[in-house]
Design a binder for these strands. Sequence first.
DNA 1: CCTGGCCAACGACAGTTGTAGTAGGACCTG
DNA 2: CAGGTCCTACTACAACTGTCGTTGGCCAGG
Lengths: 135, 135
Amino acid sequence: MPPRQTDLSDAELEVLKALWDLGPTSVREVMNRLHTQGRELAYTTVLTFLTRLKAKKYVTSKKSGQAYIYKARVSREKVTGSRLSSLIEQLFDGASAPLVLHLVQSNKLSPDEIGELRRMLDDLDASPADAEGDD
Amino acid sequence: MPPRQTDLSDAELEVLKALWDLGPTSVREVMNRLHTQGRELAYTTVLTFLTRLKAKKYVTSKKSGQAYIYKARVSREKVTGSRLSSLIEQLFDGASAPLVLHLVQSNKLSPDEIGELRRMLDDLDASPADAEGDD
DNA sequence: CCTGGCCAACGACAGTTGTAGTAGGACCTG
DNA sequence: CAGGTCCTACTACAACTGTCGTTGGCCAGG
C-alpha cells in the first residue's frame, strides 16, 4: 500500500466534524461532544485522532494554559466537496449527473426538497455560474 | 479495530466494477480489463482481490475447465446505493437533499444535465413513486 | 510538600488493505 | 515423458486504522 499519510480516515472525520461543530476547543470538549453523540471513545483515543489530524494538516493546535486548543484548518465544505468528488469518481467515473439522477430516482427526497431543488435549478438559469474556482 | 470482514475496500470495488463491466469471467480477463484501464495490477493481486471479494460474498465462482469463472453476486446499483448512503450519512447525517443541493450549487452539471434533471423532477410529480422497496 | 487530577507524548496491538511472490497441480506440446 | 504455461492456494509484508494503556509532567488542595 503506497504511503498516503494524508487522507482523512472515517474516525478522523468524525472527530473533525465534532471540531467543526464546536469551533476551536480542547481534546476533552471534543470527547464530550462525541459522547453526547453516543460515540464512546476514550480520551486518549480522541487525542490520538487529533494528533493524527494535526500530522495530516487538518487541524492546528496552540497551547492555552495547561491544555491545547485544537482548531480545524480545513472547512467542512472543502472536505465535503472532496469526499464527494472521490465518491463520484469512484462510482460514476467522475460524472456527477448520474449521482443526482440516482438520488432523485431513489426517491429519497421529500416533496419540499424537490421543490427547493427545482427552485435552485431555476436560479441557476437566471444567474449563470459566476466562475467559481473549480477546486 | 473491530473486525468487519464485510465491507468493500476501494481496490476491491475497482475489481468488482471490472467484473460488472465484463460479466462472469476469469481472473485473467478481469486483469486485462484493468490493464486497458491503465490499472497495472499483477495477476496474483487481482486474484487476491477476487478471493477476498468471494470471502466477503460479493462474488461467486465456479470452476470451468482449468480456471474459475467469477460472477458478481451484488448489483452495481446496490453497491452504488449503499456507498452513497454511507457517504450521505457520514457527510450530511443522512439527509440527501443537502448533497443534491451541494452538487447543483457547485455547478458541476452541464446545461443538458440540468435540463434532464428538471425533466426528471417533473416526472416524479407526475408518477408518484410506485412503492419501490426502500432498500 | 505530598496527593489526586488533568494533560499530552509514546508505544502498542490487532485487523484491514494494497500488492505481490512462490509453490505445486493441470495441461499441452514436442 | 520433460518443459513450458496457466491457474489457484498460500504466505508475506508494510502502511493505515481504530482503540487504548502507560508514563511522566504540571497544578490545585490539604
